[in-house]
Every structure is written in structure tokens, then in C-alpha cells.
């Protein structure tokens, strides 16, 4: 099944999908990592991308904000062709604007170690002239408060635990008020006891109807939080659907065997 467009849930107006992916292919040299992906993401939806390591789910996520360029196909975000052919300078400009509207959180946090939590959050809004300094600090304070770290604003990343770092990273990517958030295995590098605090923040965002794409190995969390689950293997979308269907009643043998493997562990 190549077309993984999610069915209408009736929760939101069926306005245009905020992300449309068509025929997406990505090669790393001779290695084909994405072999033709079609996918729609509706505004306000939480999409979980699941699959074994090497299935292409992280690569797919990274093509959406063009941390990876694509070999073939189209990605549309908010009515704009993400991977349009442009001369270098124009493309850079286009990407900077695009990325201001797409937040991304990484597996290894990638906080700026030489800046405090507060400075990590305010860097982009101030540098990009989105807010003046006072306004940016006020906004950052609200975001740190939201992720439960209002008392850690002046701490450097090295003084924070993994879970705290990841929550600062979430606040940082919210600082530009993005329309879409990408989460790339954000709890995989955390000690098990720290996973909950990060998941709680993501659930909170879900409640606020933030559109999110979540690459995860944590299937229970995926089932719990998502509106739509996409199972990938070998660079293809194998099966997609609402979590209750995909987890409880998978149709494809590959999906069944993957779920078996994971849940039997």
C-alpha cells in the first residue's frame, strides 16, 4: 500500500493537508533509503512513524524540513513546494523561512552547550528579528514554564539531566511558533525513568492541537498519543491507519511480524 493518506477523522475541518508528500525518493549514493512515499498530514493531527531501524522513518522526517534533500518526488508544506528547484541563495532563503515554521527535536537534544536554557530558547527569535529581546525573554519564560523548567532558565545544558535537556529543546523549537513539529526519536537516548517527563510535554502539545510527526520506537506511546500511525519498512510505507486499527488489527504480514517482534520482547 503506497498511498498512506490518513482517513478523515471528523475532528477537524477537512481543509488541505498541511504536509503532502508525493512519490518521495531518497538515495544516499547507491543506497535507496526512501523508495516512493506518499503521505498526507492533516493540521492538528499527530502522526507516528514506526518501523525497524533502517526503515527510512528518520530520513523521511528529515526531508520534511530539508535537513536531507530529496532525490525525487514532492513535499508540500502549507501550500508551498518545499523542495522546489532554486538557485543556491534563493533556496537558502526559502529554507530559512520554511524552517522557522517547522520545529524539530532531535534524539541527542543538540542544545547549544555554550548558551543557557533561556539563551537556547531566545536565540532564533532574536536573531531572526521575530521579537525584540524583552518580548523573546518573556515568551521563552512561558515556554520554559510550559515544559516545567521555569526554574532552570539560567542553567547551562551541562547542568541539566537528559529529560530536562530534551524539554528545553522542545521549548527552543516552539520559540518560533511553528505550525508543525517534528520529533526524531526524542526519548531514545534517555534513561527509562526520564522518558515520562518528555512524553508528558508532547501529550500536552497534542492537547493543544499542535501538528506533530513523531518518529518513535515507543509503540505504547505511539498508540496512546497519535491519530494516525504509519508503519515503514525498507523505504516503503507498508501500512497506515488509526492506531487502534494498526496495532490491534494489522492487515499486512510485515506489520504483524514487526508488532510481534516488538511486543514479544
Amino acid at each position: 500500500m503506497l498511498n498512506a493518506a490518513p482517513p478523515a477523522t471528523g475532528r477537524f475541518d477537512m481543509s488541505d493537508p498541511i504536509v503532502k508528500i508525493r512519490g518521495l525518493k531518497k538515495n544516499f549514493g547507491a543506497l535507496q533509503v526512501l523508495k516512493g512515499i506518499d503521505m498526507d498530514i492533516e493540521p492538528g493531527h499527530i502522526v507516528a512513524l514506526i518501523g525497524a531501524s533502517g526503515s527510512g522513518k528518520s530520513t523521511l522526517l528529515r526531508t520534511v524540513n530539508q535537513l536531507e534533500d530529496v532525490t525525487d518526488g514532492e513535499i508540500w508544506f502549507d501550500g508551498d513546494l518545499v523542495n522546489k528547484k532554486l538557485p543556491h541563495r534563493a533556496r537558502e532563503k526559502h529554507l530559512n523561512l520554511l524552517r522557522q515554521n517547522i520545529g524539530m527535536v532531535f534524539q541527542h537534544f543538540n542544545l547549544f552547550p555554550h548558551l543557557t536554557a533561556m539563551e537556547n530558547v531566545t536565540l532564533a527569535p532574536i536573531m531572526l528579528g521575530r521579537m525584540n529581546k524583552a518580548k523573546a525573554i518573556e515568551h521563552a519564560q512561558q515556554l520554559l514554564d510550559k515544559v516545567g523548567l521555569d526554574d532552570r532558565a539560567e542553567y547551562y545544558p551541562s547542568q541539566l539531566s537528559g529529560g530536562q535537556k530534551q524539554r528545553v529543546a522542545i521549548a527552543r523549537s516552539l520559540a518560533m511558533k511553528p505550525k508543525l513539529m517534528l520529533f526524531d526519536e526524542v526519548t531514545s537516548a534517555l534513561d527509562p525513568e526520564l522518558v515520562g517527563e518528555v512524553n508528558r510535554v508532547m501529550k500536552q502539545l497534542a492537547k493543544e492541537h499542535m501538528t506533530m510527526v513523531i518518529v518513535t520506537h515507543d509503540l505504547r506511546f505511539a498508540e496512546d498519543v497519535s491519530d494516525h500511525v504509519v508503519f515503514m519498512a525498507d523505504g516503503y510505507v507498508v501500512e497506515a491507519g488509526p492506531p487502534e486499527q494498526l496495532f490491534r488489527n494489522p492487515q499486512k504480514p510485515k506489520t504483524k511480524s514487526f508488532l510481534h517482534q516488538v511486543f514479544d520482547e
Binding site: L67, N110, L111, F112, A124, A175, M176
Partner: peptide
């Protein structure tokens, strides 16, 4: 670390 560059670019910095 390459992740520092990716994180900077992903928030929209040039």
C-alpha cells in the same frame, strides 16, 4: 558536532 549545525539550521538560522 554536526548536530549543532543541524539544530541551528532547523530553527531557521542562516
Amino acid at each position: 558536532d554536526k548536530g549543532q549545525y543541524e539544530a541551528s539550521r532547523s530553527v531557521g538560522l542562516s
